[in-house]
Each structure stands twice: as C-alpha cells, then as structure tokens.
C-alpha cells in the first residue's frame, strides 16, 4: 500500500518535512502530506515552501497570526484555492500517497473525499434533510429513498444533531440556531463520508457552550477520520488537537505534537506567539 511505503520512507528519514518534528504518535499513519507548497495570490506570495505531514485519525491544528497563510494552506488540501481567480500553486499534496494535483484527478472528487467546514455556518436555503442529502444525491451515494434516509440520519447522529432535529427534518435549515447550523454543515460534510475534514475556525462564531459541543464532536470524529483545523484560539488548539503547526508570514515555522508545542516550543517565534508576546 502506498501509505505503508510512505511511512517506511518517512521512518528512513527521507521524507521528513523540514520544520516538522514528527507526529502526535508514532503509531499514527500519515493521511496526507504536503511538500514544498508555494502559493501566490496574483503578485503576492502567500505560502513559501510549506511541507507538513498530517496524521490520520487525529486532529492537526494550524495556528498563527492573521495573514500567516494557515487558511491558504488548509485550502490547498482540497484544491479549494483553485476556485479563486489569480491563485497559483506549486508543490505536491498527497493523500494516501496519491498526488491530488495530478492532471488525471478530478477536483470535485477530491473535495468529496476532503470535506470542509467554514467559520460561519452556511447551510443552503433548503430543508434540514435536503441540506444533508444534497451532496449524497449529487455524488449518487445512496440508492433509493430508504438508503438516503439512513444516510441522512447517520450523518445527523454523527454530528450530534439528530435528537434536536429528528422531528422537523423537513423544516428550513436557516431556522436553526447558529450552533445547530454549524453542526448541520458538519453533518452535510459527513454525509459524503469524507476521509479528511478541514475546518476553518469552526467555532469562532459560537458561544462557549456551543464551542464545547463542537470540540466534543471533533474529538469523536477524530476516532475515524483525519481532521485539520484552523483556529485563532490557542486554548482550542491545545484542547482539541494532537499535532500543532505554527505558521508565520507564509512559512511553516514549527510543527510537532501539541504537547511539545505548548510545553516546549523550539522556535522563539512559536514561543512568542503562543505565550502572547507577539507584535
């Protein structure tokens, strides 16, 4: 398998990303790896030679000040940057050892394997049911009404929303609270059975209780899938993630297990940022 080969190469030291001091745990296989990512927005360079390994069934947090490139990097993992005009990317992103930027790869299928959750919940102006069923219908994931019902229910269960919406699946999604909407879009992502879920500040618009529920959900989901989260909250990165990568001015400064980063960061810039000494 490509992944085994990849891990063997990594163990031999030939694939270790510079600045990346290894995984949350040696037992965790690598789900995705980025090598030498460079990204331009028109004339502005946003990422400089970023290389990072992302462990499977674990949460990787990307932290850094605004404009550090963490969200840009996140979007390279599902080719989301391509939909923006004037963006040029180079470097490799492999998922299970397969280059997702290869000419033969359909970006739509990449985005089905790599789901995304944004800062503001963005449900479609449709019913709760249709929001979750949307992607599954598009990709033909369920055959028949019963299969689709099951898929929707499973996704809502997994997102911890089922008990709150089971009795009103066909009411408008936009009538839900912000916190529920955020879990709804997570359910919508889960309905496609993604292997990786990217989250861009998923709880920055939520209150502390709703934030705690999202974090609990992230914890549960990480048992099965690979999660990459961009967060402005240092405390959230420390709470939810296994691995933390610190970005600064478009460069990956340091990546290591979250415990390492928060007890003994090696780079002075990482230290200054997480302890609140920046700027």
């Amino acid at each position: 398998m490509a992944t085994d080969f990849h891990n063997a190469m990594r163990a031999a030291g030939s694939l270790t990303a510079p600045g990346d001091r290894g995984e949350a745990s040696d037992a965790t296989p690598i789900k995705a790896s980025a090598r030498g990512i460079v990204l331009w927005y028109g004339e502005t360079q946003a990422l400089f030679d970023v290389s990072l390994d992302i462990p499977d069934r674990a949460v990787t947090a990307l932290i850094g000040p605004s404009g550090s490139g963490k969200s840009s990097f996140l979007r390279t993992l599902n080719r989301m940057n391509e939909v923006m005009p004037g963006v040029r990317t180079s470097g490799r992103v492999e998922i299970d050892g397969e280059d997702i930027y290869a000419p033969s790869v359909d970006p739509v299928l990449v985005r089905a394997r790599v789901g995304m959750v944004f800062q503001r919940p963005n449900p479609f102006p449709k019913s709760i049911y249709d929001n979750v069923a949307y992607g599954a219908r598009l990709h033909g994931l369920a055959k028949g009404r019963d299969a689709l019902d099951t898929l929707v229910a499973d996704a809502l269960h997994a997102a911890g929303l089922w008990s709150e919406v089971a009795h009103r699946l066909h009411t408008p999604a936009l009538a839900l609270t912000d916190a529920q909407q955020q879990r709804l879009v997570i359910a919508r992502a889960l309905a496609l059975q993604p292997e990786i879920i990217l989250m861009d500040e998923p709880s920055s618009a939520l209150d502390p209780v709703a934030t705690a529920r999202i974090e609990e959900l992230i914890d549960e989901l990480a048992q099965k899938v690979c999660i990459v989260i961009v967060t402005h909250s240092m405390a959230q990165a420390a709470r939810v993630s296994h691995k933390t990568a610190f970005f600064h001015e478009g460069r990956l400064i340091e990546a290591a297990s979250t415990e390492e980063i928060f007890t003994n960061p090696r780079d002075a810039r990482t230290h200054d940022f997480i302890t609140g000494r920046f700027g």
Binding site: I261, T263, N264, P265
Partner: peptide, 9 residues
Amino acid sequence: RQPVAADLR
C-alpha cells in the same frame, strides 16, 4: 492566565 510554554514551565 493559562500559561503555556516557557511561562508554564
């Protein structure tokens, strides 16, 4: 203050 890193140490 929830100190981290060198502050925690």
